[in-house]
Simulated scan of single mutants.
Amino acid sequence: MSKTVLVVDDQIGIRLLLEEVIHQEGYNVEVAINGKEALDSITAKQPDLILLDYKLPIIDGPNLLKKLEAQNIFVPTVVMSGLPDKANDEMKAYKSVIKTIGKPFQLNDIREMVNHILK
């Protein structure tokens, strides 16, 4: 059974790009455009990995993680941010976060990181 990656980003270009790259690596990809949609998706069926934008409409990245962890849902999460240093400091509070990466990012780095985490 193939593993599933949930891509959560409000920018359509980033969602489509990540969806294509991750799908090419043989993984199932689900997408969400905001934290509320992501929360609903994760509680319905937990993915194996979440690529989560730090700043999102409705429920932002940190609040999504807070809600998940309050429900004892811990999915390995990579947080993407235009301000990675600020995000990295804040993300240390969450057990689910395994890495914080800056935007823009290199697609090969994403490909290698996803494969490394899910292998």
Rank of each mutant, 00 (worst) to 15 (best):
13 G>F: 11
14 I>N: 09
15 R>D: 05
16 L>M: 15
16 L>Q: 15
16 L>C: 04
17 L>H: 05
19 E>H: 05
20 E>R: 13
21 V>W: 07
25 E>I: 08
25 E>G: 12
25 E>L: 15
26 G>F: 14
27 Y>M: 09
27 Y>S: 09
30 E>K: 15
33 I>R: 08
35 G>D: 11
35 G>S: 11
36 K>L: 15
37 E>F: 00
38 A>T: 11
42 I>R: 04
45 K>T: 14
48 D>I: 02
49 L>W: 13
52 L>Y: 10
53 D>P: 06
55 K>H: 11
56 L>N: 07
56 L>H: 03
56 L>E: 07
57 P>V: 10
57 P>N: 05
58 I>A: 04
59 I>N: 02
62 P>Y: 12
62 P>F: 11
63 N>P: 01
63 N>L: 07
63 N>V: 04
64 L>H: 11
64 L>R: 12
66 K>V: 07
68 L>H: 09
68 L>D: 08
69 E>L: 13
70 A>T: 11
74 F>K: 14
78 V>M: 05
79 V>T: 07
81 S>D: 04
83 L>S: 14
83 L>I: 13
84 P>Y: 06
84 P>A: 10
85 D>A: 13
86 K>W: 11
94 Y>E: 06
94 Y>N: 02
95 K>P: 00
96 S>G: 00
97 V>A: 08
100 T>H: 03
105 F>T: 10
105 F>G: 07
